[in-house]
Design a protein around this nucleic acid. Sequence first.
DNA 1: CATGAATGAGATTTCATTCAT
DNA 2: GATGAATGAAATCTCATTCAT
Lengths: 215, 215, 215, 215
Amino acid sequence: MADQDSLITQLFDEEEELTDKQKKIIIAAIESFSEKGYAATSTSEIAKKAGVAEGTIFRHYKTKKDLLLGIVAPAMAKLLAPFVIKDLYKVLDTKYEHFEDFLRAMIENRAAFLKKNLPLFKILIQEIPFHPELKEQFTEHIAKKVFDRFIKLTEYYQEKGQIIDLPPQQILRLTITTIMGYFIARYLFLPEADWNDEEEIELTIQFLMRGLAAN
Amino acid sequence: MADQDSLITQLFDEEEELTDKQKKIIIAAIESFSEKGYAATSTSEIAKKAGVAEGTIFRHYKTKKDLLLGIVAPAMAKLLAPFVIKDLYKVLDTKYEHFEDFLRAMIENRAAFLKKNLPLFKILIQEIPFHPELKEQFTEHIAKKVFDRFIKLTEYYQEKGQIIDLPPQQILRLTITTIMGYFIARYLFLPEADWNDEEEIELTIQFLMRGLAAN
Amino acid sequence: MADQDSLITQLFDEEEELTDKQKKIIIAAIESFSEKGYAATSTSEIAKKAGVAEGTIFRHYKTKKDLLLGIVAPAMAKLLAPFVIKDLYKVLDTKYEHFEDFLRAMIENRAAFLKKNLPLFKILIQEIPFHPELKEQFTEHIAKKVFDRFIKLTEYYQEKGQIIDLPPQQILRLTITTIMGYFIARYLFLPEADWNDEEEIELTIQFLMRGLAAN
Amino acid sequence: MADQDSLITQLFDEEEELTDKQKKIIIAAIESFSEKGYAATSTSEIAKKAGVAEGTIFRHYKTKKDLLLGIVAPAMAKLLAPFVIKDLYKVLDTKYEHFEDFLRAMIENRAAFLKKNLPLFKILIQEIPFHPELKEQFTEHIAKKVFDRFIKLTEYYQEKGQIIDLPPQQILRLTITTIMGYFIARYLFLPEADWNDEEEIELTIQFLMRGLAAN
DNA sequence: CATGAATGAGATTTCATTCAT
DNA sequence: GATGAATGAAATCTCATTCAT
């Protein structure tokens, strides 16, 4: 519960004044949505899991979809976006002199973050293809911001002669694809296989480095 | 319709003797499931789209879930599995002398295949996490078969000194992850972005080659 | 099967020319109706049990109800009625000098008959309350005929001073009630209890004799 | 309605807090089940008769079968069992010195009771053969309890030399069979015949007395 | 705020019956 | 006669949502 409380405080501002029940609803909804998918989860199920009357959900969220958005939107705005963007700043502050250092910092951070917020991550991945609103929010909050910064960052390392001279968009695509590919395989497709995370991450970094290093 | 007919003939043996209506049901179900997801698709919707009475669906499939499995199971067994495995044979017949040739053949083939069977592919990707039966079938039909062959294939190229000396499982993971990462981004997450497929594929191959080449 | 064939030949005249399939349908229907009740039995279930296509049932019987009546009506007319009435004749032919002999013959005969035709008997008992047509047939074929004969028979034994001087209707009611009560308890309510049939029947006869004997 | 309310209060504890609609559902279900049988009664029919939305039924009872059990179980536990057993106590308190007094009290009481709760009685009789759960409950709540007491009671009268020296189980079987036989004929099979209840009951008692009296 | 009974639209499923072959 | 695919009406059941308390 300490864990979930921290999730809640991360997701919502203090002024938002969530009641106890509302918090429980959010936690229950995240759990159910991530396990069975949005469409296959009933509100009554969420209510039961939250220990709350069925009507209570609808005091706080006009519709079931509202509940989804009420979870995913702040998750993107408050959790994912800042986190995704975070280190991208530091590079230009010359925090990471080498692309490899940057990669390593980024991946390790993200891995820890994803593991902690796995359910939210699963909801995002699974529901985005079905809800245009989510896709919009995603592009709005994440894609755009990442894109600009990453372009600059890539150019920075390219100028330093560290990475290959490809259009930055493609560097971006390959990087994200490789990293996300690992995470999706790891957490969505074969979560029960036994993974040696540290080794896989190092492997992934080395692979990326070889693939993107200037020759 | 010619297109779908070919899909049907690929998915089902001739002896199975599907009636006309049953074919229409399958086509409609594939379309709807892939667009809205299994749980969010109603059988009445499928019936309407197929131009069939709702009862007709249940004459052929005892439950809605049966319908899903009745589509996905043959899709894996008849379509996906042979296709995925196909070129893996040829390598040992020294069809592809260089790993790069193999990669290129494999990716190009798969890309064409996926584009043609996109809806089935989407259903697979989206529903596997929610249906243990599907996951089992997947491991059974696809994962196991690919795994063994790919190991041998990797060792073959490693002996020829063409690719890096990593455990074959990891070569496999990186290869699949990179390729699937592209496809998922391309077709599931950002299908409407305008992609230059040829260029991206070539890029991906080069990236993989650099990442996996023996130094 | 020999058994069922004999049932069929008892139920239907030879001229009726039942096809093989029709016989199977009848046998299957009797089995299912008696086990689960008419309303809870589906025609498709009967078809499957009979090894016959669903449509075949409706070639022979316009409706499901027709099938019920097509079984129960001949069962009453051909099987039950003659059997019930049978010994009632003999009495007046002075076959049975004592009421007790008559009772014993009647009960033992009936018991054997019921055991052999239990499913039909169950259908009759269970469905009569819900189908006015059956009730009518029952009164028509059985009740009326029995009634008249039994009245005479009772008077015969009353004149001989063997049984108590009550209105024959009441003698009839008590007799039937006692006998049927035993059969219903035995076969419908507690069929799986272990009954010593011979003993119970003898007991029942003695009980009836004491209850009805002229003092 | 006053009548049904009393039925409801008899069937359910006050703490159970049935809503008004739930009561209406129960009353409607009892009526329909007893008239047409469980399998032939649709939930929509019950809903309409109860003046309630169909969904409301399923809010209170997960399945249609649950509704049946939710009616029959308390009917056995609260109504039938106490009633059946009731006078059996009194005998040993020397309330009834003669077996005949006991019989008369028992039958008259039960007749009144049955007439009042006819629908419930019909449901019980008609559905027990098809639902193992009901049969179990019946043996549990009724049969077992009656059995023990009746054995003792019989021995009591046997010691007093009032009834015949048969194994008590058989005395029990004959007694119940005779009484129930009357009730079933009276209320299930020929309810519309015109019965002179008082006379029939007296007749039945006399018959039983003669049949069971010690000679 | 919270409850939970009630709703009614709709989802899944069953089933008697029809009909072209 | 026999088949079994197809039907559509109806049955069972689910569920998001409302509302009186």
